[in-house]
Design a protein around this nucleic acid. Structure first.
Ligand SMILES: Nc1ncnc2c1ncn2[C@@H]1O[C@H](COP(=O)(O)OP(=O)(O)OP(=O)(O)O)[C@@H](O)[C@H]1O
Length: 753
DNA sequence: TTCTCATACTTTTTT
DNA sequence: AGTATGAGAA
């Protein structure tokens, strides 16, 4: 029966029996555990329609959580299409958007004023940095970024400053900073990303009245990508779905890739434990990929421990083999991708937007961007440094935010002297000291400037701040829905931000570029005006929406993305690039040990399973991060690929075979990557054979002679050992005085570091 | 106080 | 490569 369609009910049309079982399951807790492409999201969508149609739940009493805002929008329109009516009250959003929406109304209960703003990680780090300075800690030993990570982790675990357990000296400082940071956030009337979730959970825990209200409103709660929920999200689901427990979650532990954000795939197990009466449904039919792609994916993921083995199968047929490509460096890798993109379009009539290029780190997008620009092929980035992170945009946003929330300290400090108004360190200090001494809110202080009796500031300082405060109040009066574009024009004109741009740009080009960004931003404000957005709508949306969220599907451009941002999507053709040890798995993940490496393995798995028909894997022998350069061995995951499913140049395939022979299947031992920050200039050989040898890094066979170490040879002198044959008796050495040579290992004497 | 220049530091993934 | 910080001159 499996795999055959049942079609008794229009909502079940074309679904297989397991999918139908999930959709029609009883109202009680239900868990759908299934691999990629098995229709989990599809099932969740239809389940919503089913609840409305068959269980007569009013649509506004259903809440669904998706992983991205874009997925939320798509889910809403699909449900509407299934039911043939608009469903404005249906609550669908990410955890963050949903919480922000609820808190927009309820935050005053927690002591926020209703014009609170959302701080992104950059804002948080600025605030933390200021606090570190105020507490007199050394900025170097207490980097804002690291501290922010600790604080976020605590919030994800619902640990409040008072309960923060300090296990080290560093942690003791973190605990103090965390407490001060929370106070500063409250004073600034701001919430960071973690607060959005934590405050919502606290609200539900602390206010019985609000809890009952939300619980009464939401009869059913549905969550997609449940494997990537963290503690506070899990608690939110639990709190909101009580007491009737009509909770429906879908997930796949093999696709858990947000551990760094506190997510724990064991929430799937926890769900089964917390709801012992829950129905568990497995889906095994894959509708997305060819069998070859599934087999490769399966071979990769089967090395992970602690997982339910899934028996994925497809009716899509075997498909074509997986292409593996070795490139000399990232530019050649990009050229390879370009070449294949053109070929796919010409011979397989695949649109640009049907193609995804996936990499581990955002920095890797650069080589692809440059190549695509050179070749004049259209592309778009799903992740990375976005529009809103540009200096000029952040400045203008800070103006808007301060207008909306005059207590926003981070924005205030950003723009008080941008453009320069002769308010330097000293003036600012005098102002800040006064505020601290009198324990004033920033907004109150800005008002008190007008009353000489109430402030002790020196004449000039007072005058300068007063002028700023006057501007601010004038703008605030203008900040009405429909007038955001005008407001922008006034800000730019009255601060002479245009002149500031010119002054602070190095070249004409840069000034022009930044001015263009500003007009693009202006366009967005006009757009907001058109749809009648208020300032807070606009600010919230831009804090919570990512580049990928606002991308139109029909925009015919190749998608460049990290593994993380590509999750949940599918493409006829997928390129997975940068398959080098230390890149995937990333060196930092390797340092985290087996958990880290298994997560990297899942990243690879997620990437592979995005592909419908065409899958390309590539690695580069050399990369140039940070102006330096590194020579890389191939990813350990490449050795786990079943050889008979691969296609590539004979040399590459031979090399992979060799690599497989040399390493026992997936030892999670970090191999010894060759990583030289600034290696001696290496003359890259054009000879493919030599290049292949160059690539043939092996795990060390003799403890004495180490790949990546230096050794001396009686005839050729000193050199860098870049490879050792699996037999252990022959080594490839890059000699300082000559070139790459293969020599007998016994003629080499290892040198100390 | 502002601007310019040199120097040091970074070095995963995202809401 | 890119940003952030600090010193010194205008
Ligand atoms: N019963 C079905 N018949 C035909 N196609 C289906 C069926 N169910 C799902 N699909 C298709 O399979 C693809 C994958 O579905 P979906 O995105 O819901 O899977 P998923 O399990 O959520 O995947 P992932 O875990 O990778 O995000 C989609 O293109 C969907 O339209």
């Amino acid at each position: 029966m499996r795999g055959t369609a049942v079609s008794k009910h229009p909502l079940l049309d074309g679904l297989n029996p397991e999918q139908a079982a999930a959709i029609t399951a009883d109202l009680g807790p239900t868990l759908v555990l299934a691999g990629p492409g098995s229709g989990k999201t599809n099932v969740l969508t239809r389940r919503i329609a089913w609840l409305i149609q068959e269980h007569n739940l009013p649509h506004h009493r259903i809440m669904a959580v998706t992983f991205t805002n874009k997925a939320a929008g798509e889910m809403r329109s699909r449900v509407e299409k299934l039911l043939g009516s608009k469903l404005r009250g249906l609550q669908i959003g990410t955890f963050h958007s949903t919480c922000a929406r609820f808190l927009r109304r309820d935050a005053p209960i927690l002591g926020y004023r209703d014009n609170w703003v959302i701080y992104d990680s950059d804002d948080s780090q600025r605030l933390i940095k200021a606090i570190v300075a105020e507490l007199g800690y050394a900025p170097k030993e207490n980097p804002a970024r690291r501290i922010n990570n600790r604080i976020s982790a605590a919030k994800n675990e619902m640990i409040l400053p008072a309960n923060y357990q300090a296990m080290s000296r560093f942690d003791e400082r973190v605990a103090r900073i965390y407490a001060a940071y929370q106070q500063a956030l409250q004073a600034a009337n701001a919430m960071d990303f973690g607060d959005l979730l934590l405050n919502m959970a606290l609200l539900l825990q602390r206010s019985e009245e609000r809890r009952k209200d939300y619980q009464d409103r939401f009869l059913a709660v549905l969550v997609d990508e449940f494997q990537d929920t963290n503690t506070v999200q899990y608690q939110l689901v639990k709190l909101l779905s009580a007491p009737q427990q009509f909770v429906f979650v879908v997930g796949d532990e093999d696709q858990a890739i947000y551990r760094f954000r506190g997510a724990d795939y064991r929430n799937l197990l926890r769900f089964r434990k917390d709801y012992p009466q829950s129905t568990v449904i497995l889906l095994e039919q894959n509708y997305r990929s060819t069998q070859t792609i599934l087999d490769v994916a399966g071979a990769i993921i089967s090395n992970n421990r602690n997982r339910t083995a899934k028996n994925l199968h497809t009716s899509r047929g075997q498909g074509e083999p997986i292409a593996v490509h070795e490139a000399y460096d990232e530019q050649y890798e990009a050229d390879f991708v370009l070449e294949q993109v053109r070929r796919l379009r010409d011979s397989a009539s695949i649109a640009y937007s049907d193609i995804a290029v996936i990499y581990r780190t955002n920095a890797q997008s650069r080589a692809f961007e440059e190549a695509f620009i050179r070749a004049r092929l259209p592309y778009t980035l799903l992740s990375g440094f976005g529009f809103y992170q540009r200096r000029e945009i952040k400045d203008l946003l800070a103006y808007l935010r301060l207008i909306y929330n005059p207590d926003d300290r981070v924005s205030f400090e950003r723009i008080i002297n941008t453009p320069a108004r002769a308010i330097g360190k000293k003036s600012l200090q005098e102002f800040a000291d006064w505020i601290t001494r009198e324990d004033l809110a920033l907004s109150d202080a800005l008002n008190l400037l007008y009353y000489d009796d109430f402030n002790p500031l020196s004449r000039t300082v007072k005058r300068k701040f007063r002028e700023f405060s006057q501007l601010l109040s004038a703008w605030r009066d203008m900040a009405q829905p429909g007038g955001l574009g005008d407001l922008f024009q006034h800000i730019v004109a009255q601060t002479r931000y245009d002149l500031h741009l010119e002054k602070t740009s190095q070249h004409e080009d840069e000034a022009l570029d930044r001015a263009q960004n500003l007009s693009e931003f202006y366009g967005m404000l006009l757009n907001a005006d058109e749809i009648g957005q208020s300032l807070h709508d606009f600010l919230d949306e831009r804090s919570l929406y990512t580049t990928a969220d606002s991308l139109e599907d029909d925009d015919d451009k190749v998608r460049l993305s990290t593994f993380h941002s590509i999750k949940g999507l599918e493409f006829p053709a997928v390129f997975i690039t940068g398959l080098e040890q230390d890149n995937l798995p990333h060196r930092n993940a390797i340092a985290e040990g087996i958990e880290g490496i298994e997560e990297e393995c899942r990243l690879f798995y997620v990437g592979i399973t995005r592909a419908e028909d065409h899958l390309f894997l590539s690695y580069a022998l050399q990369r140039r991060p940070f102006g330096g350069s590194s020579i890389n061995g191939t990813s350990q995951f490449l050795s786990d690929l079943p050889a008979h499913l691969l296609d590539g140049s004979p040399l590459t395939l031979a090399y992979l075979r060799q690599a497989r022979a040399a390493t026992a299947p997936t030892q999670w031992e970090p191999r010894h990557p060759i990583f030289e920050r600034k290696p001696k200039p290496i003359a890259p050989s054009a000879n493919p054979t030599i290049r292949a040898q160059f690539a043939a890094f092996k795990a060390p066979q003799k403890p004495t002679l180490r790949v990546g170490g230096r050794a001396t040879h009686k005839q050729f002198g000193d050199g860098l050992v870049i490879g050792i044959e699996s037999t252990g008796d022959i080594a490839s050495v890059l000699f300082d005085q000559s070139e790459l040579k293969k020599v007998f290992a016994e003629d080499l004497t290892p040198l100390g570091e």
